[in-house]
């Protein structure tokens, strides 16, 4: 029982980070109907950028985060201008392959810049101790990252519900033409969603990298987050978080009880089952197609 609870809590912690990255993914899908296959590479590059500012330039955490957020959001804006604006209204395969092209490019860039720094760790920000919550030992690193993720998700929800920019983005997500005719710049809204997704991915990369070290394997998180978003339903933030938690818990439990090999594929097995039985996910909108 003790191991079960421990595995479960580890799963929830990692799953919340998956959920956070899945939120970035859902954001881009909602605003521009594009599946961002480069999410994983954005996570990986974001983690390395965090390492550069924290471990190489020795900035304090808050300043380093601000710098990285600024850089990646600029990159997000740039990506919208080229090549993603060209992809509006293109067939699905073209949008998939464009984001895959971005992913491959980012991977090449990471190989060029950081190929000797595989498996490095962030400098310690807090001293690692174990805290007990209801008698269950709990690493304080995962506790604080859980708190941070929850804070970020709440902040994002607030941003979408109440801020003017968030309102614009939601309108653009609903219907491009309608939003445009109401005086909202749709391209700007899409660019903002890419920038926020980049920030969210960099944060996810930072948290995951802090827990398990930074390497190119972080890029695979993107696909797991994508599976999580699909399980949760592509249109829903709470679905994305819930899907992420499901994926994290499933991974932790299979890793703990069955084996490492299955751990790597269990998210995809869950995703295929969900796709066969409930193609639009737990909270997604069912689409009715007409000719």
């Amino acid at each position: 029982m003790q191991t079960f609870i421990q595995l479960f809590i580890t799963g929830v912690t990692v799953g919340c980070i998956y959920g956070l990255i899945a939120v970035g993914f859902v954001l881009i899908y909602k605003s521009s109907q594009i599946f961002n296959f480069a999410q994983g590479e954005m996570v990986m590059v974001g983690a390395y950028l965090m390492w550069v500012v924290l471990g190489y330039f020795n900035m304090p955490v808050w300043l380093g985060m601000l710098v990285v957020f600024f850089v990646v959001s600029l990159a997000g804006y740039g990506l919208e201008r080229f090549p993603l604006r060209q992809m509006i209204g293109q067939p699905v395969l073209a949008t998939i392959m464009v984001t895959m092209g971005i992913a491959v490019f980012l991977r090449g860039l990471a190989i060029l810049l950081w190929s000797e720094k595989i498996g490095i760790k962030f400098p310690a920000i807090i001293t690692e101790t174990t805290i007990n919550i209801f008698g269950i030992p709990f690493s304080n690193v995962s506790f604080w990252s859980l708190v941070f993720v929850l804070f970020l998700v709440l902040a994002l929800s607030w941003f979408f519900l109440y801020s003017r920019t968030g309102l614009h983005m939601r309108a653009a997500a609903e219907n491009h033409q309608l939003a445009q005719s109401m005086g909202i710049r749709v391209t700007l809204a899409i660019a903002q969603s890419w920038a926020i997704a980049a920030i969210v991915s960099a944060t996810g990369g930072f948290l995951l990298g802090y827990m398990r070290g930074i390497d190119f394997g972080l890029a695979e998180i993107g696909l797991i987050a994508m599976a999580a978003a699909l399980v949760g339903g592509l249109e829903s933030f709470k679905g994305a978080i819930l899907g992420g938690v499901i994926m994290g818990v499933a991974e932790a439990l299979t890793g703990g009880y069955i084996g490492h090999g299955l751990k790597e594929v269990i998210p995809y097995i869950i995703m295929v089952l969900v796709l066969i039985y409930k193609p639009y996910g737990l909270f997604g909108l069912e689409k009715i197609e007409r000719v």
Binding site: Q90, M97, G101, F105, G108, S115
Partner: peptide, 26 residues
Amino acid sequence: IGAQISASLVEMSFGVAIILFLAFEP
């Protein structure tokens, strides 16, 4: 510039080629 330049060039050129083709000659 580092030892991995070939591997990185292979990946980056492929990514750029895909993006350019999709944008200009789908």
